[in-house]
Design a protein around this nucleic acid. Structure first.
Lengths: 152, 152
DNA sequence: ATCCTTGCAAACAGTTTGCAACCCT
DNA sequence: AGGGTTGCAAACTGTTTGCAAGGAT
Protein backbone atom coordinates (compact mmCIF):
# COMPACT_ATOMS: atom_id res chain seq x y z
CA UNK A 1 0.00 0.00 0.00
CA UNK A 2 1.60 3.20 -1.19
CA UNK A 3 -0.36 5.49 1.11
CA UNK A 4 1.21 4.33 4.37
CA UNK A 5 2.97 7.64 4.85
CA UNK A 6 -0.20 9.65 4.31
CA UNK A 7 -2.20 7.30 6.48
CA UNK A 8 0.25 7.89 9.32
CA UNK A 9 0.09 11.63 8.72
CA UNK A 10 -3.70 11.47 8.90
CA UNK A 11 -3.64 9.56 12.16
CA UNK A 12 -1.11 12.00 13.59
CA UNK A 13 -3.25 14.92 12.55
CA UNK A 14 -6.28 13.37 14.21
CA UNK A 15 -4.40 12.73 17.47
CA UNK A 16 -2.76 16.13 17.59
CA UNK A 17 -6.06 17.89 17.02
CA UNK A 18 -7.99 15.94 19.63
CA UNK A 19 -9.97 14.06 17.01
CA UNK A 20 -10.75 10.40 17.37
CA UNK A 21 -9.61 7.56 15.22
CA UNK A 22 -12.74 5.83 14.04
CA UNK A 23 -13.39 3.00 11.66
CA UNK A 24 -15.37 5.31 9.39
CA UNK A 25 -12.49 7.74 9.09
CA UNK A 26 -9.98 5.06 8.23
CA UNK A 27 -12.31 3.40 5.75
CA UNK A 28 -12.93 6.72 3.99
CA UNK A 29 -9.23 7.47 3.95
CA UNK A 30 -8.45 4.10 2.42
CA UNK A 31 -11.16 4.44 -0.14
CA UNK A 32 -10.12 7.83 -1.45
CA UNK A 33 -6.47 6.82 -1.54
CA UNK A 34 -7.36 3.75 -3.55
CA UNK A 35 -9.18 5.77 -6.16
CA UNK A 36 -6.95 7.07 -8.91
CA UNK A 37 -9.38 9.49 -10.42
CA UNK A 38 -11.59 12.34 -9.34
CA UNK A 39 -14.53 11.08 -7.35
CA UNK A 40 -17.55 12.71 -5.79
CA UNK A 41 -19.02 12.05 -2.37
CA UNK A 42 -21.75 9.83 -3.72
CA UNK A 43 -19.28 7.55 -5.49
CA UNK A 44 -17.19 7.21 -2.35
CA UNK A 45 -20.27 6.38 -0.32
CA UNK A 46 -21.37 3.75 -2.82
CA UNK A 47 -17.89 2.21 -2.96
CA UNK A 48 -17.74 1.99 0.83
CA UNK A 49 -21.16 0.36 1.01
CA UNK A 50 -20.15 -2.09 -1.70
CA UNK A 51 -17.26 -3.14 0.52
CA UNK A 52 -19.58 -3.69 3.43
CA UNK A 53 -18.91 -0.55 5.46
CA UNK A 54 -21.92 0.89 7.21
CA UNK A 55 -20.89 4.54 6.95
CA UNK A 56 -23.50 7.24 6.35
CA UNK A 57 -23.60 10.02 3.79
CA UNK A 58 -23.26 12.73 6.45
CA UNK A 59 -20.12 11.11 7.81
CA UNK A 60 -18.60 10.95 4.36
CA UNK A 61 -19.16 14.67 3.85
CA UNK A 62 -17.92 15.60 7.30
CA UNK A 63 -14.76 13.59 7.02
CA UNK A 64 -14.00 14.66 3.51
CA UNK A 65 -13.85 18.17 4.91
CA UNK A 66 -11.52 16.90 7.59
CA UNK A 67 -9.22 15.32 5.02
CA UNK A 68 -9.19 18.59 3.13
CA UNK A 69 -8.29 20.42 6.33
CA UNK A 70 -5.38 18.01 6.84
CA UNK A 71 -4.09 18.87 3.39
CA UNK A 72 -4.44 15.28 2.24
CA UNK A 73 -7.34 15.75 -0.12
CA UNK A 74 -8.22 18.38 -2.70
CA UNK A 75 -11.85 19.40 -3.10
CA UNK A 76 -12.90 21.36 -6.13
CA UNK A 77 -15.74 22.21 -8.41
CA UNK A 78 -14.67 21.34 -11.91
CA UNK A 79 -17.46 22.95 -13.84
CA UNK A 80 -20.02 20.41 -12.69
CA UNK A 81 -22.61 20.62 -9.99
CA UNK A 82 -20.84 18.28 -7.59
CA UNK A 83 -17.60 18.72 -5.76
CA UNK A 84 -14.89 16.36 -6.89
CA UNK A 85 -12.27 15.01 -4.53
CA UNK A 86 -8.82 13.64 -5.22
CA UNK A 87 -6.14 12.53 -2.82
CA UNK A 88 -3.01 14.59 -3.05
CA UNK A 89 -0.04 12.66 -4.31
CA UNK A 90 3.59 13.49 -3.76
CA UNK A 91 5.28 16.18 -5.80
CA UNK A 92 3.87 17.25 -9.11
CA UNK A 93 1.20 19.90 -9.05
CA UNK A 94 -1.13 19.34 -11.93
CA UNK A 95 -4.03 21.23 -13.40
CA UNK A 96 -7.27 20.07 -14.97
CA UNK A 97 -8.79 19.88 -18.37
CA UNK A 98 -12.50 19.23 -18.01
CA UNK A 99 -15.13 18.34 -20.57
CA UNK A 100 -18.01 20.76 -20.16
CA UNK A 101 -20.40 18.25 -21.58
CA UNK A 102 -19.63 14.85 -20.03
CA UNK A 103 -17.50 16.02 -17.09
CA UNK A 104 -14.49 13.90 -17.99
CA UNK A 105 -11.36 15.14 -16.26
CA UNK A 106 -7.80 14.95 -17.59
CA UNK A 107 -4.83 16.07 -15.58
CA UNK A 108 -1.96 17.89 -17.20
CA UNK A 109 1.31 19.48 -16.22
CA UNK A 110 2.67 22.43 -18.15
CA UNK A 111 5.54 24.41 -16.66
CA UNK A 112 5.11 27.17 -19.23
CA UNK A 113 1.50 27.70 -18.45
CA UNK A 114 2.22 27.65 -14.75
CA UNK A 115 4.64 30.54 -15.14
CA UNK A 116 2.02 32.49 -17.07
CA UNK A 117 -0.63 31.81 -14.48
CA UNK A 118 1.67 33.16 -11.81
CA UNK A 119 2.26 36.26 -13.87
CA UNK A 120 -1.45 36.86 -14.37
CA UNK A 121 -2.15 36.36 -10.69
CA UNK A 122 0.61 38.76 -9.76
CA UNK A 123 -0.58 41.35 -12.28
CA UNK A 124 -4.04 41.40 -10.68
CA UNK A 125 -3.01 41.22 -7.06
CA UNK A 126 -3.98 37.59 -6.62
CA UNK A 127 -1.85 35.11 -4.75
CA UNK A 128 0.45 33.31 -7.21
CA UNK A 129 0.89 30.55 -4.64
CA UNK A 130 -2.68 29.48 -4.23
CA UNK A 131 -3.70 29.29 -7.82
CA UNK A 132 -5.49 26.44 -9.38
CA UNK A 133 -6.24 26.28 -12.98
CA UNK A 134 -8.91 24.79 -15.18
CA UNK A 135 -9.52 24.55 -18.86
CA UNK A 136 -13.13 23.73 -19.69
CA UNK A 137 -13.68 22.46 -23.16
CA UNK A 138 -15.28 19.62 -25.05
CA UNK A 139 -13.69 16.22 -25.41
CA UNK A 140 -13.51 14.57 -28.82
CA UNK A 141 -16.50 12.32 -28.11
CA UNK A 142 -18.74 15.20 -27.10
CA UNK A 143 -17.72 17.30 -30.09
CA UNK A 144 -18.58 14.38 -32.35
CA UNK A 145 -21.89 13.91 -30.57
CA UNK A 146 -22.83 17.57 -30.89
CA UNK A 147 -22.04 17.52 -34.60
CA UNK A 148 -24.23 14.48 -35.20
CA UNK A 149 -27.04 15.84 -33.08
CA UNK A 150 -26.96 19.65 -32.92
CA UNK A 151 -28.36 21.14 -29.72
CA UNK A 152 -31.42 22.65 -31.46
CA UNK B 1 -27.84 52.61 -25.20
CA UNK B 2 -24.93 50.62 -26.54
CA UNK B 3 -26.85 47.35 -26.76
CA UNK B 4 -29.24 48.35 -29.55
CA UNK B 5 -27.62 45.97 -31.97
CA UNK B 6 -27.85 43.03 -29.57
CA UNK B 7 -31.38 43.93 -28.61
CA UNK B 8 -32.39 43.80 -32.27
CA UNK B 9 -30.59 40.49 -32.68
CA UNK B 10 -32.48 39.13 -29.67
CA UNK B 11 -35.82 40.21 -31.06
CA UNK B 12 -34.95 38.73 -34.45
CA UNK B 13 -33.96 35.48 -32.80
CA UNK B 14 -37.25 35.37 -30.93
CA UNK B 15 -39.30 36.03 -34.05
CA UNK B 16 -37.41 33.60 -36.25
CA UNK B 17 -37.73 30.84 -33.67
CA UNK B 18 -41.43 31.30 -33.09
CA UNK B 19 -40.90 32.74 -29.62
CA UNK B 20 -42.91 35.66 -28.35
CA UNK B 21 -41.70 39.09 -27.46
CA UNK B 22 -42.76 39.67 -23.89
CA UNK B 23 -42.16 42.44 -21.41
CA UNK B 24 -40.35 40.03 -19.12
CA UNK B 25 -37.92 39.03 -21.84
CA UNK B 26 -37.09 42.58 -22.78
CA UNK B 27 -36.72 43.65 -19.18
CA UNK B 28 -34.35 40.79 -18.48
CA UNK B 29 -32.38 41.55 -21.61
CA UNK B 30 -32.04 45.20 -20.64
CA UNK B 31 -31.02 44.34 -17.13
CA UNK B 32 -28.24 41.95 -18.03
CA UNK B 33 -26.91 44.30 -20.71
CA UNK B 34 -26.81 47.13 -18.20
CA UNK B 35 -24.74 45.10 -15.77
CA UNK B 36 -21.05 45.32 -16.37
CA UNK B 37 -19.98 42.52 -14.13
CA UNK B 38 -20.80 38.87 -13.59
CA UNK B 39 -24.19 38.49 -12.00
CA UNK B 40 -26.21 35.54 -10.78
CA UNK B 41 -29.90 34.87 -11.32
CA UNK B 42 -30.84 36.11 -7.87
CA UNK B 43 -29.13 39.45 -8.38
CA UNK B 44 -30.89 39.95 -11.68
CA UNK B 45 -34.23 39.09 -10.11
CA UNK B 46 -33.65 41.54 -7.28
CA UNK B 47 -32.56 44.30 -9.66
CA UNK B 48 -35.66 43.80 -11.79
CA UNK B 49 -37.94 43.90 -8.76
CA UNK B 50 -36.21 47.04 -7.53
CA UNK B 51 -37.11 48.66 -10.83
CA UNK B 52 -40.73 47.67 -10.43
CA UNK B 53 -40.90 44.71 -12.79
CA UNK B 54 -43.14 41.89 -11.65
CA UNK B 55 -41.10 39.05 -13.16
CA UNK B 56 -40.77 35.73 -11.35
CA UNK B 57 -37.71 33.69 -10.49
CA UNK B 58 -38.72 30.86 -12.84
CA UNK B 59 -39.04 33.27 -15.74
CA UNK B 60 -35.61 34.69 -15.05
CA UNK B 61 -34.06 31.22 -15.18
CA UNK B 62 -35.97 30.19 -18.26
CA UNK B 63 -35.10 33.29 -20.22
CA UNK B 64 -31.49 33.32 -19.16
CA UNK B 65 -31.24 29.94 -20.83
CA UNK B 66 -32.87 31.45 -23.88
CA UNK B 67 -30.34 34.27 -23.99
CA UNK B 68 -27.58 31.72 -23.73
CA UNK B 69 -29.10 29.77 -26.62
CA UNK B 70 -29.11 32.98 -28.70
CA UNK B 71 -25.41 33.37 -28.04
CA UNK B 72 -25.95 36.71 -26.33
CA UNK B 73 -25.14 35.62 -22.80
CA UNK B 74 -22.47 33.41 -21.29
CA UNK B 75 -23.39 31.17 -18.38
CA UNK B 76 -20.68 29.60 -16.30
CA UNK B 77 -19.75 28.19 -12.98
CA UNK B 78 -16.76 30.09 -11.72
CA UNK B 79 -15.83 27.96 -8.76
CA UNK B 80 -18.86 29.05 -6.76
CA UNK B 81 -22.14 27.30 -6.19
CA UNK B 82 -24.17 29.60 -8.41
CA UNK B 83 -24.04 30.10 -12.11
CA UNK B 84 -22.79 33.50 -13.16
CA UNK B 85 -24.03 35.26 -16.27
CA UNK B 86 -22.45 37.96 -18.36
CA UNK B 87 -23.61 39.53 -21.58
CA UNK B 88 -21.25 38.92 -24.45
CA UNK B 89 -19.58 42.06 -25.71
CA UNK B 90 -18.08 42.58 -29.13
CA UNK B 91 -14.70 41.11 -30.00
CA UNK B 92 -12.24 40.24 -27.31
CA UNK B 93 -12.52 36.81 -25.78
CA UNK B 94 -11.44 37.02 -22.19
CA UNK B 95 -10.85 34.52 -19.45
CA UNK B 96 -11.45 34.68 -15.72
CA UNK B 97 -9.44 34.96 -12.58
CA UNK B 98 -11.65 34.08 -9.63
CA UNK B 99 -11.09 34.43 -5.90
CA UNK B 100 -11.79 31.07 -4.30
CA UNK B 101 -12.67 32.75 -1.06
CA UNK B 102 -14.86 35.78 -1.84
CA UNK B 103 -15.84 34.91 -5.40
CA UNK B 104 -14.55 38.15 -6.89
CA UNK B 105 -14.06 37.84 -10.65
CA UNK B 106 -11.46 39.62 -12.75
CA UNK B 107 -11.33 39.33 -16.52
CA UNK B 108 -8.05 39.09 -18.34
CA UNK B 109 -6.78 38.66 -21.86
CA UNK B 110 -3.50 36.90 -22.53
CA UNK B 111 -2.68 35.88 -26.08
CA UNK B 112 0.24 33.77 -24.91
CA UNK B 113 -1.82 31.74 -22.52
CA UNK B 114 -4.51 31.31 -25.11
CA UNK B 115 -2.05 29.68 -27.47
CA UNK B 116 -0.91 27.34 -24.69
CA UNK B 117 -4.46 26.41 -23.83
CA UNK B 118 -5.10 25.50 -27.43
CA UNK B 119 -2.00 23.37 -27.43
CA UNK B 120 -3.03 21.54 -24.27
CA UNK B 121 -6.52 20.95 -25.63
CA UNK B 122 -5.12 19.61 -28.85
CA UNK B 123 -2.65 17.36 -27.06
CA UNK B 124 -5.49 15.69 -25.13
CA UNK B 125 -8.04 15.48 -27.90
CA UNK B 126 -10.19 18.30 -26.60
CA UNK B 127 -11.68 20.96 -28.82
CA UNK B 128 -9.33 23.96 -28.97
CA UNK B 129 -12.25 26.07 -30.15
CA UNK B 130 -14.57 25.62 -27.25
CA UNK B 131 -12.20 26.16 -24.44
CA UNK B 132 -12.80 28.40 -21.54
CA UNK B 133 -10.28 29.01 -18.95
CA UNK B 134 -10.25 29.82 -15.27
CA UNK B 135 -7.62 30.57 -12.71
CA UNK B 136 -8.86 30.15 -9.17
CA UNK B 137 -6.75 31.81 -6.54
CA UNK B 138 -7.03 34.17 -3.60
CA UNK B 139 -7.30 37.91 -3.98
CA UNK B 140 -5.06 40.17 -1.90
CA UNK B 141 -7.83 40.93 0.62
CA UNK B 142 -8.59 37.28 1.26
CA UNK B 143 -4.93 36.38 1.62
CA UNK B 144 -4.56 39.17 4.17
CA UNK B 145 -7.69 38.00 5.99
CA UNK B 146 -6.49 34.41 6.15
CA UNK B 147 -3.16 35.53 7.57
CA UNK B 148 -4.80 37.59 10.29
CA UNK B 149 -7.29 34.90 11.12
CA UNK B 150 -6.01 31.46 10.18
CA UNK B 151 -8.69 28.94 9.37
CA UNK B 152 -7.96 26.79 12.45
C1' DA C 1 -58.83 31.61 -30.90
C1' DT C 2 -54.42 29.59 -30.73
C1' DC C 3 -50.75 28.00 -27.94
C1' DC C 4 -46.50 30.04 -26.10
C1' DT C 5 -45.32 32.17 -21.49
C1' DT C 6 -45.92 33.19 -17.02
C1' DG C 7 -46.24 32.58 -11.88
C1' DC C 8 -46.71 29.62 -8.25
C1' DA C 9 -45.44 25.94 -5.72
C1' DA C 10 -43.59 21.65 -5.59
C1' DA C 11 -39.76 18.79 -7.04
C1' DC C 12 -34.91 18.17 -7.48
C1' DA C 13 -29.82 17.64 -6.59
C1' DG C 14 -26.18 18.13 -3.66
C1' DT C 15 -24.63 19.51 0.76
C1' DT C 16 -25.11 20.83 5.53
C1' DT C 17 -26.93 20.55 10.20
C1' DG C 18 -29.61 19.45 14.78
C1' DC C 19 -30.07 15.96 17.89
C1' DA C 20 -30.14 11.65 20.41
C1' DA C 21 -27.64 7.39 20.54
C1' DC C 22 -23.08 5.66 20.32
C1' DC C 23 -18.26 4.51 21.17
C1' DC C 24 -13.31 6.09 21.23
C1' DT C 25 -10.08 7.34 24.82
C1' DA D 1 -17.44 8.52 32.63
C1' DG D 2 -16.95 12.20 29.24
C1' DG D 3 -17.34 14.33 25.08
C1' DG D 4 -16.20 13.86 20.26
C1' DT D 5 -18.63 11.13 16.39
C1' DT D 6 -22.22 8.87 14.10
C1' DG D 7 -26.74 8.09 11.67
C1' DC D 8 -31.04 9.76 10.62
C1' DA D 9 -33.93 12.99 8.99
C1' DA D 10 -34.86 17.52 8.27
C1' DA D 11 -33.15 21.90 6.59
C1' DC D 12 -30.95 24.41 3.04
C1' DT D 13 -29.27 26.46 -1.45
C1' DG D 14 -29.74 26.95 -6.16
C1' DT D 15 -32.12 25.40 -10.17
C1' DT D 16 -35.72 23.05 -12.70
C1' DT D 17 -40.46 21.64 -13.75
C1' DG D 18 -45.76 20.65 -13.84
C1' DC D 19 -49.80 22.91 -14.34
C1' DA D 20 -53.46 26.21 -14.66
C1' DA D 21 -54.12 31.06 -15.71
C1' DG D 22 -52.72 34.70 -18.70
C1' DG D 23 -51.25 37.20 -22.83
C1' DA D 24 -48.88 37.76 -27.55
C1' DT D 25 -49.91 36.96 -32.31
Amino acid sequence: MSSQRERAAFIDHLKSHGHRITGERLALFDEIFEQHRHVDAEELLAALHRKGHRISRATVYRNLDLLVACGLVRKQRLGQRRYLYEHIHAGQKHDHLVCRSCGRVVEFVSPGITAMQREICRAHGFSPDHHQFQILSLCAECVAASETQPSH
